[in-house]
Amino acid sequence: MRGRTLELAVGGFMLIGLLAIIFLALRVSGLSMNSSEETYRVVAKFENIGGLTVRAKVTMAGVTIGRVSNIYLDKEDFVGVVEMDIYKQFNNLSSDASAAILTAGGLGEKYIGLIQGAELDNLTDGSEIYDTQSALVLEDLIAKFLVGRVSDEP
């Protein structure tokens, strides 16, 4: 009997451990089955990526449809190149979709927002998004605003 209660206690302990890992997976980290889903890769070039990081979200209409997988500098054109992994289930994005680097809540994390275009062709693995809008850099904005004010005055 003593051996049996011992084994039951150990079994219960392992079960609680298993429940903990399931809880952490589903409830805390929001791991869903499609996060390890297959993806296809799309490239976009930005004048300025302004603080975007790898693993940032890629959204369309506010819904996450992929992640940023890589960021590097194009050594010939001197623009930032962002590679994104888009989930395969969203395979009907049009080839003239536009991408913008946005900021969550004004000061929060940077993410990429895509806007669907009108073309009938779809983005596929290796496609490039040509219509891009760089991150808003506050210093540039202020500078432009000041220059505009100065030139407006007689």
């Binding site: 302990f13 451990g17 903990a20 952490l24 805390v28």
Partner: peptide
Amino acid sequence: ICMPTLALIFSSVGV
């Protein structure tokens, strides 16, 4: 075996 299991339980209970 036990230490990682306990850590998982600790974090879950903490949340």
